[in-house]
């Protein structure tokens, strides 16, 4: 398959991630929504760092801001920072076992949440407790599964 086909797969996974970021959850699960957009982006950047760069991550963040209705620029900032970190660390990340990867993802998503919370605090909406870090834990737990799924997708559609 050609490269345009690969692009379609990447886009499609990101669209699904964006959808999952606004799909309604029951009240008890609201604090624990995994950061699917950041996780899918991190996977593709780890797999294809020469194709997807910081600019992509930034634009994706802007789209996420519009879709979620959050402060314009909030997720753009957080995803750009994550993109920078993964571009530094992707070679190590590929060597890691799924468990070690999950630990790094925990830190990444934690940082993402911290940045988002910081921007929200500028708007007067900061969290009074540490519950906003819960998505980091849930995302880390989901990571091995998600990485496996995306790897199967990448291999079967020859995304390079």
């Amino acid at each position: 398959m050609n490269s345009a086909n690969g692009l379609l797969v990447i886009m499609l996974t990101l669209v699904v991630a964006l959808w999952l970021s606004i799909v309604p959850l029951p009240l008890w699960a609201q604090w624990g929504r995994p950061e699917f957009v950041a996780m899918v982006l991190l996977y593709w950047m780890m797999a294809l760092p020469e194709r997807i760069g910081i600019g992509w991550a930034w634009l994706l963040g802007l789209v996420q801001d519009v879709v979620e209705g959050s402060v314009f620029g909030e997720h753009a900032l957080a995803l750009a920072v994550l993109a920078y970190l993964i571009l530094i660390l992707y070679q190590r990340m590929r060597m890691f076992t799924p468990l070690q990867q999950a630990a790094v993802i925990f830190l990444f998503i934690g940082l993402h949440q911290l940045l988002c919370n910081w921007v929200q605090a500028l708007d007067g909406n900061s969290s009074s407790n540490l519950l906003f870090l819960l998505p980091a834990l849930i995302s880390a737990l989901l990571w091995p599964l998600l990485a496996l799924l995306l790897r199967v997708l990448r291999r079967s559609y020859f995304v390079r």
């Binding site: 910081i54 963040g61 314009f72 620029g73 909030e74 753009a76 750009a80 920078y84 571009l87 500028l122």
Partner: peptide, 17 residues
């Protein structure tokens, strides 16, 4: 470099915020 890109883009997002 990626560092320069990050700097520009994060400044841009702060500007937007």
């Amino acid at each position: 470099s990626i560092g320069a890109r990050l700097l520009v883009l994060s400044l841009l997002s702060l500007l937007l915020i």
